[in-house]
Structures are given as C-alpha cells and as structure tokens.
Design a protein around this nucleic acid. Structure first.
Lengths: 207, 207
DNA sequence: ACAACAATGCCCAGAAAAGGGGATGTGGAA
DNA sequence: TTCCACATCCCCTTTTCTGGGCATTGTTGT
C-alpha cells in the first residue's frame, strides 16, 4: 500500500514538480493536486488521502483556514504545511490550528519525501529553524525567578488555585485549615509580589 | 573547527560507544564524557562545549536538574537530551527546562550525529514520536466549546482578568463602569459554567 | 544550641467579589 | 415589527479575600 498524498499549492510549476516527485517515488501516490482549496473539504472527503501537503499563500482561501476546516472534519488525516513563511505568526497559527508538521519550501526533495513518510508513521517533521522556535516557545521563561522560591506546599496550593479552587476547597483537599491556606497564600503573595489570586495564577500559568 | 561535544551518560558501555562515535566522526570532538553530573557546572565552565548530550537517569543528580543548572549559567550552550524515557512527564519537563532537542536512545548512530550537527546549526532535533507529542501539545483544544460562545467584549475582559487585573482595573482600562464589568463577568460565568474568576481564568488559559 | 525556615493554626477589620435583582439603548434576525 | 443578543449601568446582600499581627511545632544547617 502506498501513502496517498494530496497537494494544495498554487504555483503550477512547484505543484507539478511535487506531483511528479511523489508519483515517481516508490511507496507514494498522489491523490490529487490543486491550486486552491475552495473545495478542499469535498476533495478530501472523496479522495481520503493519508497526508495533505498544504501551502499557506493560496488564492481565495488561505491555507491555514483550510487546515482548520480539514482538521475539524477529518481529525485522522495529517496535514503537513509546506510554505515559504517562517514568521512566528503563521508558523504558530498553523501549529495551533492542528498542523502535523511544518516544512519550509527550501527543503530538499529527498527531505520532503522523508517528511511525508515521517508524518505517515506518526512523526511531526519540522524544518530545523521551525523546530527550534517551537522548542523555545515551550521553554520556561528564565524569569521564573519568583516561582522558584515557593515551597512545595505553596506550589501545591497555587496549583489548586490555578485550577479554579476556592480557599475552602483547597483547605479540604489538602486536609489543612482554611486559615493555614490563607497563611500560605500570604507568603505566596509576598514572594511573587502580587496582591490577588488572579495575579498569582497569572504568574504561575504563564511563567 | 570541530563541534565540541560533552557527554553525560552513566552506562559505561554506551558512554564509551558515544565517545568513540563522536571522536571518530569528522567535524566532531569530545570535550569530556562523564557518568554523573555532580560537577557538571564546573566541567561545562572549564570545557566550554558547543553541545551537551544529556541522559536523564543519572546517579546522584537527575539529568533534568543538571539541565536546569546548565541552562541557567550557560544559556548559549545547547543541551540535547538522549534518553530511553518517552513519558510525557520527563519529555515536557526537559523541554520546559530548556532542552534544545530530545532523542530517544533507540536512535541510530548516524541520526544521533546528524542531530548534534543540527543542534549546532540552530535546529532542534527530536525523535519523531516526541516531535508529534510536542506538536499535539501546541494544538488548540478542539473542545474550546464554551470559550467560543463568549462575545468579543467578554473575551477581552476575561483576557484582562487572566493577566491579574482586578474589576477596577478592567473597568478603567476598558473605559466602562465597574458595574458593567460585573455584568459581563456574570455572563462569562454562565457561559463557562463557573462561579469565580479563578475558575474562568483557568478555563481560559488552559483551553 | 541556636537561627532560619517550613507548616500549621487563629483573630480582626476592611476591601473585593459573587449572587440576585432591575433598567436602557442599539442593531440584527425572524 | 417584534424579538433577541449585546453592551451598558445601578442597587442590595452575602460570601470570600486581603492585610496585618501573633503563636506553636518540627526540621535543617551552622
């Protein structure tokens, strides 16, 4: 069984090159190749590809919007973005919208094919510079500073508060009195330099 | 100039195999290879490697803790995790702690060397299954459900609250009366099925 | 042994938020 | 046109938080 690939790319030359590359590589097959994604949902429903290669800068409907629609209706179909854009906005919008991978167009044909296979096999290929930025976006801000000073108990309580618990609930869930909860929270406020639960939570969740 | 690699790996056989592999690959050099990271900071300071390969399950000091210390003192030095663990806890803890890449030990020698180079050149290599999980962690929850029902104004207010603002501050920043803020918040509570700011924020920030 | 810290508990006064009403104006959909 | 969602504003009561102070019990490091 070949991996069925569907292509959305408005540049005819690049689209045909991709089609050619996929069609003539063992183990791959082109389900369809289109220059816009106005009818993407219908096409995907009909062709049932394994992997979709999606450009972003498409006429009429932007590739990210198409991605959203496709992922909503066909969550099992993987979409690999293949575009020239490496600005944070479009990269992270794509990923948040459900892209399975993100390749820049400068990627070599061999690597593109490898990436398609990687997607099919459960991976998430990214161009190195993209991967690095994704990674960095997940790094804890070094300015964790204040948070690090919290004791275990304080962290535990802050965590409960961040899940929406009230003082009462925290008290009963931790098995301590509400007054003690208050004392811990006071210390948390001092250490984080804040004056309310919401501020503390905000620092905690967005560190 | 070769890429200077430092290795932390407690299994002697694997450590030596890595050392051998690196030392005898063109363009790479071993700065040092150690079985524990008690003196990691000192060693890193002395040897000034370009890339560090770090195991997690080390005696005395856990590799993630070492990673934290190293990244704190030497933010410019990249650390590539190389471990058997693929559980979410350790993977995401490592990444949040500042890992530049994350490879599973089953990775082929060739791919390991490629990954080191990739790190050196500004990438962030990950084993496919890891990359996929990182990707998924960044996907927008499709079950945004309740959040989607909020109007623009409500979302704006919730966003301000999530940054730790009080009712008063929200009122003055949006230019509306505090009573109106309250009304919006009441609606938000209804729509999100919550009864406090903290709960609402929690739903908002962790969607 | 003592200092420093963590965790536990309590009281009081005042501020802030929640829960329950009711009211007005605007603009779009049925 | 009528209805409804949205945004705006006000009042009253009860509950919850905040800020300040104070005390006891362990543990840890010097």
């Amino acid at each position: 069984m070949s991996i069925l690939v569907q292509v959305y790319e408005d540049n005819p030359a690049f689209r045909e090159a991709l089609t050619f590359l996929i069609q003539y590589t063992d183990g791959f097959e082109v389900a369809g190749a289109f220059g816009h994604c106005l009818d993407a949902e219908k096409q995907v429903a009909q062709l049932q590809p394994d992997v979709i290669l999606m450009d972003i800068d498409l006429p009429e409907i932007d590739g990210i919007r198409a991605l959203v629609n496709i992922r909503q209706r066909f969550p099992h179909i993987d979409v690999l973005m293949l575009t020239v854009f490496d600005d944070d906005d479009r990269v992270f919008e794509s990923i948040r919208a459900g892209a399975t991978g993100y390749l820049l167009k400068k990627t070599s044909p061999a690597r593109i094919m490898e990436a398609i296979r990687e997607v099919y096999e459960g991976g998430a290929p990214m161009s190195p510079s993209i991967a690095r930025r994704v990674m960095q976006s997940m790094h804890r801000r070094p300015g964790t500073g204040d948070l690090a000073q919290l004791t275990e108990r304080e962290t535990e309580i802050l965590s409960l508060l961040s899940r929406g618990k009230s003082y009462k609930m925290v008290a009963s869930e931790t098995g301590i009195s509400i007054e003690t909860v208050r004392t811990h929270i006071k210390r948390i406020y001092e250490k984080l330099h804040v004056h309310s639960v919401t501020e503390a939570i905000s620092k905690y969740l967005t560190r």
